[in-house]
Design a protein around this nucleic acid. Structure first.
Length: 188
DNA sequence: CGCACGATGCTCT
DNA sequence: GAGCATCGTGCGC
């Protein structure tokens, strides 16, 4: 957990790769739920597609906090997405978690999502619903209701990149990373 | 099986 | 007032 904080400190692109294979764990009154992170996307401050591109606002303030801060945002009138902040305080960088492979509390997640199998968490808004993450966790630090565990080892050879998804600017930028051949990614 | 679109409300211009 | 780091459905092939 401290080790990952050091990796996140090195920046969003580095952090996006370092987070692959880690287990994201959440606790609630429903119980514990968790999954292996299999797809991430790095957002840096100079990225026109990033919420931080136009500077700090009330909404994106968490992105400018210290590494390991959780940034949750609400979008499309119905969805939450979760990021883990990277880099120095005052710099707006974060990694969007785009897909997880469910490991713990699968029944709870099926109930929250209303589906089972691959569709439980193969997308950024799906995994927040499966893990029970909402705006109430925004700007909190990793370590309480949301934590990271070691998970599985991912070698550099097992990481690949793909086109960015769901954005209108800087689509070609090399920022989306996922574990090769993993069936739980949102898009191969 | 793939594409198109509607839902739905908050944030920033 | 537009656009959005999305998802699910519904339709046409």
């Amino acid at each position: 957990m401290d080790a990952i904080l050091e990796e996140l400190q090195k920046g969003a692109v580095y952090g996006a790769k370092a987070l692959l294979g880690r287990e994201l764990v959440t606790k609630s009154t429903d119980g514990v739920t968790a999954g292996i992170i299999v797809e991430t996307e790095a957002y840096t401050q100079d990225d026109p597609a990033s919420h931080a591109f136009r500077g700090e606002t009330k909404r994106n303030a968490a992105m400018f906090q210290s590494s390991g801060t959780i940034y949750v945002y609400f979008t499309y009138g119905m969805h939450y997405c979760v990021n883990i902040v990277c880099g120095d305080i005052g710099v707006g960088e974060a990694v969007l978690i785009r897909a997880i492979q469910p490991t713990v509390g699968i029944e709870i997640m099926e109930q929250r999502r209303g589906v089972s199998g691959i569709r439980i968490a193969n997308g950024p808004a799906k995994l927040t619903q499966a893990l029970g993450i909402t705006l109430s966790e925004n700007a909190h630090m990793l370590g309480n209701n949301i934590t990271l565990k070691a998970g599985i080892t991912v070698h550099a050879d097992d990481i690949t990149t793909g086109p960015r998804i769901g954005i209108s600017k800087a689509q070609e930028e090399l920022a989306r990373f996922y574990i090769k051949d993993n069936i739980y990614v949102s898009r191969p």
